[in-house]
């Protein structure tokens, strides 16, 4: 997993509520597209016009935001399908962090598994950051500092955010969850032995 410590750069404002994972990556792209190539299709319904050319009005096609590492989004970002390809697609266009008033639970889980940091800040703060960016799109920069758990706006204002300390550690170290859990294999085996007595109906026979 890619480490995340500190990211500074332009932040693309895309403040609509309920941006769903179908819009981030279309279902038909899940078939046969390698993880690494998903970025080509990120937001394709919005990025491209029906003739295949780029829509210059879409924020991610505007020069300062073309490979912005930060996305400023509206509430309930990443709702809908659990497709992890939504995270791969964002990562594929260079997004490392999504700042939103709320982020869908499944999307957030997937993001954290891939070194993409979801940051939840109050809606006024996100709108304020977007306004500062829009005021000077070519120069305004935002910094997300995971170590300090802060977002630093273009005006220098510091906005602290919360994150599960365990998740923070894992992101800072680029650690994957399976390794962590396998260290607890003994506890899992003991729990399962006990559960076979407690809930025998759960435990099916292996296929022979």
């Amino acid at each position: 997993m890619q480490r995340f410590d500190r990211v500074t750069g332009p932040a693309a404002p895309l403040l609509r509520p309920n941006i769903d994972t179908d819009v981030i990556i279309r279902a038909e792209r899940l078939v046969g597209t390698p993880k690494e190539e998903m970025g080509r299709y990120a937001f394709e319904a919005w990025r491209y016009r029906s003739d295949g050319t780029e829509d210059p009005g879409f924020v991610l096609n505007r020069p300062p935001f073309r490979s912005a590492p930060i996305l400023l989004a509206g509430p309930n970002f990443g709702c809908g399908s659990s497709r992890e390809a939504a995270v791969w697609a964002l990562a594929g266009i260079g997004v490392r962090c999504v700042i939103a008033p709320s982020v869908s639970d499944i999307f957030a889980g997937n993001a954290l598994q891939n070194g993409l940091l979801p940051v939840v800040l109050p809606e006024e703060t996100v709108r304020g950051l977007a306004a500062l960016i829009e005021a000077d799109p070519d120069r305004a920069r935002i910094t997300v500092d995971l170590e300090a758990q802060t977002v630093i706006g273009p005006d220098g204002a510091v906005h602290p955010f919360a994150i599960d300390p365990d998740r923070r550690e894992a992101l800072l170290a680029g650690l994957d969850d399976i390794g962590l859990t396998l260290r607890q294999a003994g506890a899992i085996a003991a729990w399962q032995a006990e559960d076979r007595r407690r809930r025998p109906w759960v435990w099916l026979e292996a296929l022979t």
Binding site: S82, Q113, T181, L182, I188
Partner: peptide, 21 residues
């Protein structure tokens, strides 16, 4: 019952567990 992404799915296949809040 709940949905997960493929990394979490792989985690569950390998460990029969998930790390969840």
């Amino acid at each position: 019952a709940f949905g997960v992404g493929s990394t979490e799915l792989a985690h569950a296949l390998a460990t029969q567990t998930l790390r969840l809040a």
